[in-house]
Computed example of a mutant assay.
Amino acid sequence: MGDVVVAGSGLPDAGLVRKWLDEAADTPAALPDEGYVALLGADGPELDELCRTADLLRHQATGDVLTYAVNRNLDTAAVSGTSAPARARLTALVVEARELGATEICMQGPLPADSDDDYLALIEAIAQAGPIHLHAFRAPELLDGAARHQMTLPDFLAAAREAGLGSVPGTAARILDDEVRARLLGGPDLPVRTWTDVIETAHRAGLFSTSTMVYGHIETPAQQVAHLRLLAEIQDRTGGFHEFIAMPFTPGPVSPGVGSLPGPSWRQTRAVHAVARLLLHGRIANIQAAWPKFGFDAAVDLLRGGANDLGGLLLDGRLAPGSFAEAGLTLSTREVEQAAQALGRTARQRTTGYADV
């Protein structure tokens, strides 16, 4: 077959894609890199077949259940502060989330450099307002917290878990390739090795996490495969990833050396989710269709192509509804149940760790 590419499209020849589709039917998680790269270029009938293959694996891994969480997102800077009014406001936000049925608070973003607050105190304040699962702080924020407390990262993570931290987001991964990360940012970014070390240290501390990939910018299909491979290797070492979330690059300008990028096509999006299901099969059972990133109808389509989870409802609440980046994007349980019915699945609310609620 060779590395046949259709002239002018940049996509592999349909015959080459079909070859790897046949291989994937028997050994979905054991293809060589070139096989996954070819599948990422699937289009037309071959893309539909790839999605059907991924959907069969989804059925094997998670059954005919459509899971979702009830959560509320908070921005760290927007809810920090040690004054009595600031703490009362944070407590009220957590209490309101619980009253609305949330089982999770997701908090991301760094503390401002001049903040009088600190990460451990914030964790304790949320835990005292609970009980609720706190899913919080990306790798750079965990390093910042350790530095502010003059602690080693393992000691800081142990203290954070003792204070009430339940799990950490696997975001800030972007594409796990140092050259791509530096070009996107227009300067130094958190090195891949450091990101990996932080996530593995969190897992060893008893904090599970999500795993993520931001795709559709300057990266190549081969770099996407390498990213997924690294996530699989981390999972083999720690078992700490509970889900994978593919997030599309938001169109717009990036670093001066890169210029403006349009973001991924819908073809790319379908292929990325399906290939992630294949490559991660047997390692990470849950593939999320991140509905705030794609829109609800598009996310439902991704649930037909390998994904099994819709993520969180993202409750706004009445108190400070604009206190996180995706404010105004909320989903109802009725919408989830209707989607599950259309897919022939059963809707099931889950905890952050995918246990039943």
Results as ranks from 00 to 15, higher is better:
A97S: 13
A226D: 12
E46A: 15
G170P: 01
D33M: 15
H227T: 03
R204A: 15
G63P: 10
S323H: 01
E233L: 11
R304E: 10
E46L: 12
A327M: 04
N308S: 14
T91M: 11
A129V: 02
V37F: 11
T194W: 04
D144P: 00
E23T: 04
Q341A: 15
A246L: 06
C51R: 10
A289Y: 08
L93R: 00
A30Y: 09
L16G: 06
H281Q: 14
G305P: 04
P191Q: 09
Y36H: 03
A271C: 05
E104F: 01
D118Y: 13
R58T: 15
P12T: 12
D236R: 13
E243R: 07
A289R: 01
W20T: 02
E141K: 00
L21P: 00
G81M: 07
A97M: 09
G295A: 08
T171R: 04
Q60N: 14
E96R: 03
E337F: 14
L310D: 01
L184S: 05
A61I: 02
L93H: 06
R183S: 10
P256K: 11
I199T: 04
R89Q: 09
T196K: 14
L142S: 02
G206M: 00
H273S: 13
A325L: 13
Q338H: 14
L56K: 13
A147L: 08
N286R: 06
L303R: 00
G328V: 05
L11G: 04
Q288E: 15
A121K: 02
P12Q: 13
S260V: 10
T27R: 14
P188V: 14
A78G: 12
G353M: 13
T352F: 15
G306V: 00
A88F: 12
T212F: 10
G186H: 06
A38K: 00
L90N: 02
P262A: 09
R181W: 12
E162Q: 15
R237G: 05
P12G: 11
R277K: 05
A146K: 05
T238V: 06
P221Q: 13
P32L: 13
E219A: 07
P221T: 03
S115E: 04
T171S: 15
P251T: 07
L184Y: 11
Y119A: 07
T220I: 03
A202H: 04
Y215P: 08
T333Q: 09
D26W: 14
V70A: 11
I284C: 06
Q223L: 03
I199D: 07
A347S: 09
M107D: 05
L122T: 10
R138Q: 15
T212D: 08
P169N: 08
D189Q: 14
A42P: 01
V37Q: 10
Q223A: 04
P140H: 04
S255R: 01
H149K: 14
L165C: 13
V272N: 10
